[in-house]
Write a protein that binds this DNA or RNA. Sequence first.
DNA 1: AATTAGTCCACAAAATTTGTGGAGTATTCA
DNA 2: TGAATACTCCACAAATTTTGTGGACTAATT
Lengths: 136, 136
Amino acid sequence: MLSKKSQYAFKALGYLTEKYTEGPILISEIAKKKKIPLKFLENILLELKKADILDSKKGKGGGYFLKKSPEKVKVATIIRLVNGPISMIPCVSLYFYERCKNCNEKHCGLHEMMTEVRDATLNIVENRTLVDLVDY
Amino acid sequence: MLSKKSQYAFKALGYLTEKYTEGPILISEIAKKKKIPLKFLENILLELKKADILDSKKGKGGGYFLKKSPEKVKVATIIRLVNGPISMIPCVSLYFYERCKNCNEKHCGLHEMMTEVRDATLNIVENRTLVDLVDY
DNA sequence: AATTAGTCCACAAAATTTGTGGAGTATTCA
DNA sequence: TGAATACTCCACAAATTTTGTGGACTAATT
């Protein structure tokens, strides 16, 4: 399961995508509309800013907004950033790989199956963007 | 990611599948061969026994063994049992469903995408069994 | 200079994960 | 029957992660 933090991040990004043309959006507005604890959301948005997904402006008329056009930001990127590995086990992860101590990857049944699961998931989340988060 | 507990469970079940014809296997043997902390493994195997996946025998010549034939036990069952939901978010889970507070499922982009991810994963883990865990 | 709004850092509560210890029970076999 | 073997059960504990909160600070606008 995705952490609450990740779910909050997706809700917030969906909201910012909807409001993409409206300039900076207040954290407090997002928090209220999406029912996310304000201070927690602050941390999440700041993290997304540091990762170049969002940008922000201080002072009156300020707030957060998407740095790039929403169709250019993959869902896979957000998951990896906020939640961590997409794979079910470390030894099949592309971005968070760790060697498996006690098995030979070439001949490990678990490894093979989990590679399939990973690819099936990636096939979706690598081909969806923030645009796909918006309500319709 | 699957928890370590889940990964241990899979390693142990793979081992018991290999040794399926050899009668009861000692916890200590599994722990040693698969490098799993013995007392932790005890808890895991007991849980699998309570869920009718394993059975055990006490005393000399005792140990753990698969209760059913390994090709009859789905990987999906084990994941749900030891790790929890397979879905990425609660509102698309079949076995651990929770209503989403702040969105209309019929019109939620996230909901739709995560349903696809769930189905892609289930398509694999519902069609693989303990037999697929064995090294080859 | 006053107001607005994001930034940064440290800490803390809660939950979950990952174990460990030890007494007890069932089984076998001599 | 008793000694050895091996699982059972329960409670607790350490470590880590998750989910937040508080408060001082900085930047921008008017």
